[in-house]
Each structure stands twice: as C-alpha cells, then as structure tokens.
Amino acid sequence: MSSVPLSAYLVLALILFCIGLYGALTKRNIVVVLICIELMLNAVNINLVAFAKYGAHPGVAGQIFALFTIAVAAAEAAVGLAVLMALYRNRKTVHIDEIDSMKH
C-alpha cells in the first residue's frame, strides 16, 4: 500500500506557512494581514493532522489539537476584527504602516 508520505504534507504545510509569513510581514491592509495569519495557522493544522496519522505515535490527539487551534483562531479572528473596527473608527485607516502610535 503506497500512500502519500508524511514529508509531502510537511513540505506543503511549510510552503503555505512561508506564503502566510511573507504576506503577514509585507501586506499593507490589516485585513489581509489577519487572513495571512489564518493561513499560517492552517499550515500548522495540516502538520498536526498529518502527524496524527503518520507520526511516531498516531492517534486522535493530533486531530483534537487541530480542533482547539481552529477554535482559538476563530476567537483571534473575532477579536482582531473588533480591534480593526475600533482602530478604523479612530484613525480612519486600515493601513498598517499608518498605525505607529507606539513609536515613542
């Protein structure tokens, strides 16, 4: 039985993580930065689920961790959006490079 090797999933997760990372570090719109972070979380989730099947100690624990991560990511997205709304109301901008009030 030949199946897709673990390393294929890990490399895919790596690529997605790198894409998300690059986007999070360079994108200007706060919303895009937020969804890039979601993408990075997803890449981690792939790892967790892949290890749940092909890891040294396979079991359902990996999947449960993925579920927890999704829950936290959802909470993070909700709070992030709320912060974004508050910021936008005060500063009238969604550009991350215009928000530098922590400079000094």
């Binding site: 969804i35 999947q63 999704i70 974004l84």
Partner: peptide
Amino acid sequence: YVLLSAEFVAAVQVLIYSGAITIIMLFG
C-alpha cells in the same frame, strides 16, 4: 484532512474557515 483520515476536522475546517472566518473578514 479527508485524505489524512480526519473527516470531522475537515468538516470543521469548511464550516469555520471557509464559512465563518471568511465572512467575518469580508464584513471587515
């Protein structure tokens, strides 16, 4: 996820990410 024998997580993924979070982002 389905390929990795995680049907439940796959369902959650579709529901939360493709559904909820994307919608929230669009609202934002």
